[in-house]
C-alpha cells in the first residue's frame, strides 16, 4: 500500500463546532459544511499544520488513544485520510 502524505487545511480555513455526537466543520475556502464523526475531528486536530504520512499519523493516534493492533489502525487512518481528501479538508502533498 502506498503511504500517502497529506497536509491539513490551514487552521484559519476551518470553523469547527461540536454539535453533540456530530462535529460540524465549515470550510471557508469551499463554503461547504461537513458533518463528521470521531475520529475525523481528532485526526484533523492531530495533523496540525505539517505534512504527515498516514503511517506516522497512525502511530501517533495509536500512542495517544492506546489502540491495539497497529496494522489495522494504519489501514483505518489511511481510509479516513482519503475521505478527508475527497472533502478537500486535507490535501495530498
Amino acid at each position: 500500500m502506498v503511504d500517502r502524505v497529506y497536509r491539513a487545511a490551514p487552521p484559519d480555513a476551518l470553523r469547527i463546532e461540536p454539535l453533540g455526537e456530530l462535529t460540524a466543520v465549515f470550510d471557508r475556502r469551499s463554503m461547504q459544511t461537513h458533518l463528521v464523526i470521531s475520529p475525523l475531528p481528532e485526526i484533523l486536530a492531530m495533523m496540525g499544520n505539517e505534512a504527515v504520512s498516514a503511517s506516522s499519523l497512525a502511530g501517533r493516534l495509536a500512542a495517544d488513544f492506546d489502540l491495539d493492533g497497529e496494522g489495522d489502525v494504519a489501514v483505518l487512518v489511511a481510509d479516513r485520510l482519503a475521505e478527508l481528501a475527497a472533502l478537500g479538508l486535507v490535501g495530498e502533498v
Binding site: 475556502r29 469551499s30 478537500g88 490535501g91
Partner: peptide
C-alpha cells in the same frame, strides 16, 4: 462573494 469563493474552490479541486 459566497458564490465566487465556491467557484474558486471548484478550480482548486480540479487542480488537485
Amino acid at each position: 462573494a459566497v458564490a465566487r469563493t465556491q467557484s474558486l474552490w471548484e478550480a482548486e479541486m480540479a487542480r488537485r
